[in-house]
Structure formats: structure tokens, C-alpha cells
Simulated assay, not measured.
Amino acid sequence: MSQGTTGVGHRASALRRTFRLITAVLTGVLLLALTGVTLVDVVGRYFFSRPLSGASEMTELLVMAVVFTGLPAICLDDGHITVDLFTAKLKGTAETVQVMLARLVVVVMLGLISWQLWEHGARIGAWGETTVYLRFPLAPVARAASVLCALSAAIVLMLAVLRLPKGKSGDI
């Protein structure tokens, strides 16, 4: 029986699909908000000579939210940018080892990014940093990005430990 048809493999696939769907909906809502902010700003600026106050800051925060909210779904799909000039020809055990090592590198990198974002959040929190116009505190933003990176690292580690096959983007 292949791993995809075992109980663990089936549950992992179902969990992947559910988590991917939740992430897709949340990211979609954030993209709609970003589109709305841009639309209101442009219409206000060109038709009413009244741009949306703080639109550039909202845009920056929403773009960051889209990127970090989508990161766990990318990790579930092994959807990181890769160059497989040599690895495309690997089969069997060699391919399994290569996927495992690549996942472990991703875990380490996401762990480092998460740690640094958390530290950065602590520093800017201590300084009371906010956005310039809206006065939105930045420490919670950095901390949320850190948590999403840590979650993504945990997802990739789980994929590596369970030796799950590479996910497919079309599985939503």
C-alpha cells in the first residue's frame, strides 16, 4: 500500500487541503482589502481630489500580510522557488533524500527569519514604533510575521519528518 493511501497519508492530505483552503480564503480577503484601498485611493485622488488618508501605509501593511499569510500554504505545497537543473533527474531514494534535505534547509531558514522578526518586533516595540501617518503600532505586525514564519517552519518540518510526498497546488 502506498503512503498516499495509508491512514496517516490520507489524514495529512485532508489536513493540507483544509489548511490550504483556509489560507486561500484569508489571503483572498486580504487581497480584496488591498484592491479596495487602492480603488478608493485612486478614485478619491483623481475624481474628488481627496486621496485616501494613509493609503500608502495600509497598502504596505496589506502587502506584508498577504505575503506572510500565504507562506504556510506555499510550504504545504513545497511551492518554494527552485532550480532543478540536476535534481530533476533524481529518482527513488536519491529524490527522497534530496527533498528531505531541501525541506530541512527551508526549516532552518524560516526558523532564522522567524527568530529575527521576533527580535525586531521586540526592539521596535520597546521604541514604540508606529506607522508615520496612521500611528499603527509595528511591533505586533513583526510578531505576527514571526509567528507565521515559525508556523511555516513547523509545517515544513512535519513534511520532512513524515516524509510526505510533495504537495500539488491544484489540490485545493
Results as ranks from 00 to 15, higher is better:
Met1Ser: 13
Gln3Trp: 12
Gly4Ser: 14
Thr6Gln: 06
Thr6Gly: 13
Val8Leu: 15
Gly9Thr: 09
Arg11Gly: 13
Ala14Met: 10
Ala14Leu: 11
Arg16Trp: 09
Arg17Ile: 06
Phe19Pro: 08
Phe19Arg: 09
Arg20His: 14
Leu21Met: 14
Leu21His: 04
Thr23Ile: 15
Thr23Leu: 11
Gly28Gln: 02
Gly28Val: 05
Val29Arg: 07
Leu31Cys: 14
Leu34Cys: 02
Leu34Gln: 01
Val37Lys: 01
Val37His: 00
Thr38Tyr: 04
Leu39Cys: 12
Val40Trp: 13
Val40Gln: 11
Val40Arg: 14
Val42Gln: 01
Val43Gln: 02
Val43Glu: 03
Tyr46Met: 08
Tyr46Cys: 07
Phe47Arg: 10
Phe47Gln: 12
Phe47Asn: 11
Phe48His: 13
Phe48Cys: 10
Phe48Met: 12
Phe48Trp: 14
Arg50Cys: 05
Leu52Ser: 06
Ser56Pro: 00
Glu57Lys: 00
Thr59Asp: 00
Glu60Tyr: 12
Leu61His: 03
Met64Pro: 07
Ala65Thr: 09
Val67Ala: 04
Gly70Trp: 12
Gly70Leu: 11
Leu71Tyr: 07
Pro72Gln: 00
Ala73Tyr: 09
Ala73Phe: 02
Leu76Arg: 03
Gly79Lys: 00
Gly79Phe: 03
Ile81Leu: 14
Thr82Asp: 12
Thr82Phe: 04
Val83Cys: 13
Asp84Ser: 08
Leu85Ser: 13
Phe86Ala: 10
Phe86Glu: 10
Lys89Ala: 14
Leu90Gln: 13
Leu90Ile: 09
Ala94Lys: 14
Glu95Leu: 15
Thr96Ile: 10
Val97His: 12
Met100Gln: 12
Met100Ser: 06
Ala102Tyr: 13
Arg103Val: 01
Leu104Trp: 04
Leu104Gly: 01
Leu104Cys: 09
Leu104Glu: 03
Val105Thr: 09
Val106Pro: 06
Val107Ile: 07
Val107Gln: 05
Met109Ile: 15
Leu112Pro: 03
Ile113Gln: 10
Ile113Glu: 03
Ile113Trp: 05
Ser114Phe: 01
Gln116Met: 12
Leu117Trp: 04
Trp118Val: 05
Gly121Arg: 04
Arg123Thr: 13
Ala126Met: 02
Ala126Glu: 09
Trp127Gln: 15
Gly128Phe: 01
Glu129Gln: 14
Thr131Met: 04
Thr131Lys: 06
Thr131Glu: 04
Val132His: 11
Val132Ala: 14
Leu134Cys: 01
Arg135Asp: 14
Phe136Ser: 06
Phe136Asp: 05
Pro137Val: 00
Ala139Arg: 00
Ala139Cys: 04
Ala139Lys: 01
Pro140Gly: 05
Ala142Met: 11
Ala142Gln: 07
Arg143Gly: 03
Ala144Arg: 11
Ala145Met: 14
Val147Arg: 00
Val147Phe: 03
Ser152Cys: 02
Ala153Trp: 08
Val156Glu: 11
Val156Lys: 09
Val156Gln: 15
Val156Gly: 01
Ala160Gln: 05
Ala160Glu: 01
Leu162Asp: 09
Arg163Met: 10
Leu164His: 02
Leu164Ser: 03
Leu164Gly: 09
Pro165Phe: 07
Ser169Tyr: 11
